[in-house]
């Protein structure tokens, strides 16, 4: 288990290094620079001073080596948009809102998705199945940038049930979390349904039945635990889904989170901010994947006990 963990950590670092490198050079390929656009052009002299101050006049590979060196020490540089703030401090301020939104939407998605999937499987080819499958189909086919504004408009503006945007009290969390969870609900429902249907036909379910256990007991102890296994494996990719979803959803609902920050940074060519955020997102993802694997081994004893090999 220890060697496995260490090897995984090494792979994680390599992955992150590749991501930083690719992002860094892609940023350099972008037209324009952080110091204003064609209209607000600074005089060439001021520009030269600015560039020299940020080291942008050096050759690209030199900039790269310097940047990597800083990153290795945990310093993601200074933001170009907010010259007084480091990228790390911006991430620190924006992170809580994003994490909260992500977790809330994951919780909604897991609870609703799994329940819908289980209901669909137990009511296979009956009304319950069709309803759940329909919800899943809607969830997967309507993107969050459509459902977000719709929710904001109808529930927030028309019906005035919930605030249509911003991030103040608890009631402000509901709409963005729901908008963000919808596609995840859809994925989880479909996955859980298929997995349950598969498990229901297994021999050990017949064994459980032959012991005289009640249906509720069989569903609870024998079906769900086995059916949830393959679903746990996709929690990593699902976290990706939620994470990329925050980019759009935070923007729509004006949530002061990382996703929103990311979009703003792209508008203003904030190199360090973009690279830093990309690295941060990638880091979160890689760590989540890692924990998914660990979690999986806790649920499935066949994997947990394979550690001797």
């Amino acid at each position: 288990m220890l060697t496995y963990t260490l090897r995984r950590l090494l792979y994680m670092l390599i992955t992150l290094w590749i991501i930083v490198t690719v992002t860094f050079f892609l940023m350099k390929l972008l037209p324009g620079d952080p110091f204003g656009d064609a209209i607000t052009r600074l005089p060439p002299e001021s520009m030269a001073i600015l560039k020299a101050q940020y080291g942008l006049d050096n050759p690209v590979w030199e900039q790269y080596l310097k940047y990597i060196g800083h990153v290795a020490q945990g310093d993601l540089g200074v933001s170009y948009q907010y010259p007084t703030r480091s990228v790390v401090s911006v991430i620190k301020t924006a992170m809580p809102a994003s994490i909260e939104l992500g977790i809330e939407s994951m919780i909604i998605a897991i609870i609703v998705g799994l329940i819908l999937g289980i209901v669909a499987a137990l009511k296979h080819n009956k009304a319950g199945d069709y309803t759940a499958s329909m919800i899943a189909l809607i969830g997967i086919s309507i993107p969050s940038f459509v459902i977000g504004p719709l929710l904001s408009y109808f529930v927030g503006v028309k019906l005035r049930l919930l605030p249509p945007g911003l991030w103040l009290g608890p009631e402000y969390r509901v709409l963005p979390a729901v908008a963000l969870s919808l596609s995840t609900i859809a994925i989880l429902t479909r996955m859980m349904r298929a997995s349950m249907l598969d498990v229901m036909n297994q021999d050990y379910i017949k064994t459980a039945k032959s012991k005289g256990l009640s249906t509720a007991n069989i569903v609870d102890k024998h079906m769900i635990r086995n059916a949830i296994l393959p679903v746990v494996t996709i929690l990593g990719p699902i976290a990706v889904n939620v994470l990329t979803g925050t980019l759009v959803v935070e923007r729509i609902f004006s949530v002061p989170g990382l996703g929103n920050q990311f979009v703003t940074s792209v508008y203003s060519n904030d190199y360090t901010m973009i690279t830093g955020l990309t690295l941060f997102y990638a880091g979160v993802l890689v760590v989540m994947m890692f924990f998914t694997d660990i979690a999986y081994s806790f649920i499935d004893p066949r994997i947990r006990l394979g550690k001797g090999k």
Partner: peptide
């Protein structure tokens, strides 16, 4: 459900799949 397991028991063909793996 009261009779199964209590008054009749069953052994299945394939022991590799008839026990719950978890």
């Amino acid at each position: 459900q009261k009779i199964r397991g209590e008054e009749m028991g069953m052994i299945f063909q394939d022991p590799m799949t008839s026990l719950n793996p978890t």
